[in-house]
Design a protein around this nucleic acid. Structure first.
Length: 178
DNA sequence: CGGCTGATGATCT
DNA sequence: GATCATCAGCCGG
């Protein structure tokens, strides 16, 4: 596992997110991520541990799931050692296959969770172990990684912590700043 | 098209 | 009561 949040954000690009429910399995490649650092004002862990953000403080590789704007569910991966609050937001996926209906047009952090039926029940689970939601690999390597400012935030908005697979059509936002 | 804004609810102060 | 890592729809050019 990469040793810090930025390295993890890049490492996750190209990895396969596997969602297994009682009735279906979804496979999707991670094509866009954002890093939220320790001590970063935009990181939910910035003001210390609370009931909502406690999963960010788990050892790297755990899911931090929360509801944004009362509507959208967000999926993050904790990214530092236990006790240090930081994470990587998953912003876009490329659908690879499924045993059920899988809308290939699901882009953006709030829509991909709906497509994979990711909910709060998954908050805090270990993504490095096979289970209802976990991270796999099919050997694919992201070659050209793009980088830009993070999307939709107001605090620490000047940090270039968004990463994406530059030549992947499922990336949800702008592609400036290689 | 690009920019603006209302909807919506869990969370924290 | 304020905040918010979103999104779809509406409006103007």
């Amino acid at each position: 596992m990469p040793r810090d949040t930025v390295r993890l954000a890049r490492y996750l690009l190209g990895k396969v997110l596997v969602r297994e429910t009682d009735s279906a399995i979804f496979l999707a490649r991670i094509v866009e991520t954002e890093g939220y650092l320790p001590g970063d004002a935009a990181c939910h862990a910035y003001r210390g541990i609370t009931r909502r953000n406690r999963s960010l403080f788990l050892r790297k590789g755990h899911a931090y799931v929360y509801i944004c704007y009362g509507i959208h569910t967000m999926l993050n991966v904790s990214s530092e050692a236990a006790g240090i609050g930081a994470g990587v937001l998953i912003r876009a996926l490329q659908p690879l296959g499924s045993t059920a209906k899988f809308n290939a047009t699901q882009r953006g952090p709030g829509r991909l969770t709906a497509a994979l039926k990711i909910d709060m029940v998954l908050d805090g689970i270990d993504l490095l172990v096979r289970g209802p939601l976990w991270l796999g690999s099919d050997g694919y390597r992201a070659t050209t990684i793009g980088n830009s400012l993070r999307i939709g935030i107001t605090k620490a908005a000047d940090l270039p912590l968004r990463f994406f697979i530059a030549d992947n059509p499922y990336v949800s936002g702008p592609r400036e700043r290689r």
